[in-house]
């Protein structure tokens, strides 16, 4: 199949970017979206042009590095998949595909389609962990966890930190990401100990880093490749309120 590409090119963080048009002829249905971009880059290198910078690593929907805004949606068409799991068969022959980087205040552009997503790491460093003492491994059966809580925590834990939530949000809010992390840990006995501190710290860092305020539109949930539910945001709100009432 043939595709026409409209890709955001920007030489560096400070440069003024613009869209550039490309055409590719030999694209197979079964190619993944990133393979299509690889094909484009091979062609560009042969022609002596700078290849398009984009991020990717595991290419199996786990690492969370490959977020692209494709045809108006984060990770493109297709439900609950990351960009690397997107295949060319979801596009029509001859279709124009618009590819943009995440555009959110918290994710400045580094080059072309690559954005700086350190902000999510900084939020994690503020509280997305449990503190454990060194020593012998504790007996895993000694701490009982109900099936419901284990399931919900597992759902929250499936967040891959890709940034699609803030990218689609009209307010560039990172709430779904933080909610997933806070929720995952608050549901488990090991994480409960630091739940209050965690909620307060992570929210404080989120506010500092230029993300907007969540207005509950639900776009993040609809576009999240892991289907993280808004219910986790409600839990984050609860945890945050509880933490502030306590202190």
């Amino acid at each position: 199949m043939k595709v026409k590409l409209k890709i955001w090119r920007q030489a560096n963080a400070k440069a003024k970017g613009q869209f550039k048009n490309y055409e590719l002829d030999d694209i197979q249905d079964e190619m993944s979206f990133l393979e299509m971009l690889d094909a484009l880059n091979s062609k560009l290198i042969k022609e002596g042009e700078n290849p398009v910078a984009f991020e990717n690593d595991c290419r199996e929907g786990i690492c969370g590095t490959c977020g692209l805004f494709i045809n108006g949606r984060p990770h493109g068409p297709g439900e609950q998949i990351a960009t690397c799991q997107l295949h060319m068969r979801l596009f029509k022959d001859g279709e124009t595909i618009v590819i943009e980087p995440w555009r959110a205040g918290g994710f400045p552009i580094i080059k072309d389609l690559v954005t700086d997503r350190n902000a999510y790491d900084k939020i994690m460093q503020a509280g997305g962990f449990v503190s454990v003492n060194i020593g012998g491994t504790p007996d895993s059966n000694a701490v009982l966890i109900s099936k419901e809580h284990a399931d919900e925590a597992m759902d929250a834990a499936s967040c891959i930190g890709c940034g699609a939530c803030a990218a689609i949000c009209k307010n560039s809010s990172a709430m779904l990401f933080i909610a997933a992390k806070v929720s995952q840990l608050a549901l488990l006995p090991q994480g409960k100990v630091e739940a209050s501190k965690r909620a307060k710290r992570m929210v404080a860092v989120m506010d500092e880093l230029g993300f907007g305020n969540c207005s509950n539109t639900g776009a993040c949930e609809a576009e999240c490749p892991k289907g993280i539910s808004l219910a986790h945001i409600a839990r984050l709100n609860r945890e945050f309120l509880k933490a502030n009432i306590k202190s």
Partner: peptide
């Protein structure tokens, strides 16, 4: 604050079905 947090708009944004 929300307007400030979204300095650049997308060229193409499809959001009818997500919100």
């Amino acid at each position: 604050q929300n307007w400030r947090a979204t300095p650049v708009k997308y060229k193409k944004k499809y959001q009818k079905e997500s919100s």
